[in-house]
Amino acid sequence: MAVRVSMTVNGKAVSAEVEPRTLLVTFIREHLGLTGTHVGCDTAQCGACTIHMNGKAIKACSMVAMQAQDANVVTIEGVAKPDGTLHPMQAAFKEHHGLQCGFCTPGMVMNAIDFAKSHPNPSEQEVREALEGNLCRCTGYHNIVKAITAGAKAMAG
């Protein structure tokens, strides 16, 4: 009944026997112990579980782990430099107070990084639309929008 799932997570090859019904987010949180990826809803709205799969932001709660077979996965734990220096998008969130309780933050940052790759100088409207899949109840988005705008510019160098 169990199936073997293998993928690369934050640059490390991982492999485990799991029940087929194991969600990718469950695999990441429970099997790998990477609890920075959060679960905030059960209908794929909140985006707290956003990670990168093969470079694209996706919701890890909306797929079974097997769908990430052989994929290259990056979670929030894999974003800062190995020496702990924050990624420019993380730094922008800090600088612009783009987080409060921190629960939606990993998903916000992961989506923002993916978005910024194709939008080095986004307009406010573009940023707001890009956040359609991420809910935040604390910040009112004001400072998240500022942070992503600045973070995108910083990423573009």
Binding site: K56, I58, N111, G133
Partner: peptide, 9 residues
């Protein structure tokens, strides 16, 4: 359709 993350899957 949906949102960015949904469109990626």
């Amino acid at each position: 359709i949906g949102d960015r993350q949904v469109r990626n899957m």
